[in-house]
Design a protein around this nucleic acid. Structure first.
Lengths: 240, 240
DNA sequence: CGGATAGTTGACAAGCCTCAAGCTCAGTGG
DNA sequence: CCACTGAGCTTGAGGCTTGTCAACTATCCG
């Protein structure tokens, strides 16, 4: 699953040291975590990182690229649960719930660079201090809140609201990792991904997206998105 | 919010000692938890137990009756996130995430009897032993899995599938608490509740439910439900 | 018996899906 | 340099699922 790179890629050069896994670990313990790193890997787009049903023993920290959690259903249906962006911890779940058999899979959305650790090692390090544990719990909380919002979106909002909500949440998620500037950020999702996240079809996503663009609320460049009228977008997200 | 009963209602007489809060606590520590009980309360149906935005300092264990987590949206919309049945811990979240401002409310579905504790007390007791903490983590895991399933239902299933899924999950939830017998269990939900949980309207829920009943898959008595053809129901839940 | 609550049903409309065709654009190989 | 290809985007016609609204019925409870 992708080749193991040489050790020239150091954690020190990594622009994402702060936001990723390291946020759970005190500065003086970071040397310890670096030494635990098992591998640094590149993986292509559209590759399964964690197949449904497995209990991962490896923990991945996402340095570059995007991934997503999803479940496949009979009849060519697919539901995307959440997107994973640079600085996020893939399989965060296995830190929170060791021995958790994933009821969904994780897939790469773009080519990806990730650092690999043993789940047990990290759990031990994180649990060593209450404040590190608290940082992890914060992340778990955000995760839970995001699932809650998704249930609400899917249950009680229509296409426009769901899509606006998704865009706003991605902006927020990226902003937390300092990957957003002037309401502009990387946006590698195909319309099919938006559809599978919002419970729609790509044809309908297309229609809604065109509308939103025609109203000059957002601008979509090549793999990039800019929010032009933030307030109007929030309005749609809440009302629709 | 409901009157405080005298202390004649003892934990010993409580048929739900095992499944409720006590499941997180070793047998020899149960005396300790009993002494922490702040109150035993009756609350009527349709009363807010925890309003959106609050950080509960009280922990409720549900002895009798049902409740539910829900979020209200502009335009008379309401999304029910999950149902809480006898033996469940209301505001389980505040054990897992202390200082968690609820992004939704909790309401009684029926008249309810609940035991009240201080969140801090219980957290201390539960964290005192790894196995107690593990029992809580198990519960948190189930909670997360159930949210995941709901996202999948709402995103990628249609009315029949969502409703079948809801019925099956409730059966499972009640069975865990030994509140199910011969595929029969208490079922106090109005069609409106089913609608708000599945993201449908009560009119449509009615149509779908009638169909399912006409096919003799389930039987609905007064506040009671019996699953007649379990396999067929599972089939609908997965395919639809 | 009266009043409230919940369930049932029908007609119609809206939202979204399905399917399919055509388009754009970036890559690829001759 | 250009045709070819494939992936993704766009658009349209028609149909299905579900929503909306309203009237009616059933049931419960005091």
């Amino acid at each position: 699953m992708g080749r193991v790179l040489d050790e020239n890629i150091t954690c020190d050069k990594c622009g994402l040291v702060e936001p990723t896994l390291y946020r759970f670990v005190h500065k003086d313990e970071r040397q310890a975590i670096k030494q635990r790193r098992v591998a640094v890997q590149h993986v292509e787009a559209r590759r399964v990182l964690i197949p449904e049903g497995t209990i991962p023993e490896r923990l991945f920290a996402l340095r570059e690229g995007w991934a997503f959690r999803y479940k496949e259903l009979p009849g060519n249906r697919r539901q995307i649960l959440s997107f994973i962006v640079p600085g996020d911890c893939i399989s965060l779940e296995s830190l929170i719930f060791p021995k958790f058999p994933f009821p969904y899979s994780i897939n790469t959305l773009t080519p990806v660079t990730l650092c690999t650790f043993a789940v047990g090692d990290i759990i031990r390090i994180v649990n060593a201090s209450p404040s590190q544990r608290a940082a992890l719990d914060d992340e778990a909380l955000r995760f839970y809140q995001s699932m809650t919002r998704r249930v609400i979106d899917l249950g009680r909002r229509r296409a426009h609201g769901r899509i606006a909500q998704l865009i706003l949440e991605l902006e927020e998620q990226l902003a937390r990792h300092h990957l957003e500037k002037n309401h502009t950020f990387e946006f590698p999702l195909r319309q099919e991904h938006i559809a599978d996240a919002t419970g729609l079809t790509s044809a309908h996503v297309n229609r809604v997206l065109s509308e939103i663009r025609k109203k000059n609320l957002i601008d979509m460049g090549p793999r990039q998105l800019r929010i032009i009228d933030h307030n109007a977008l929030v309005d749609i997200a809440e009302r629709d």
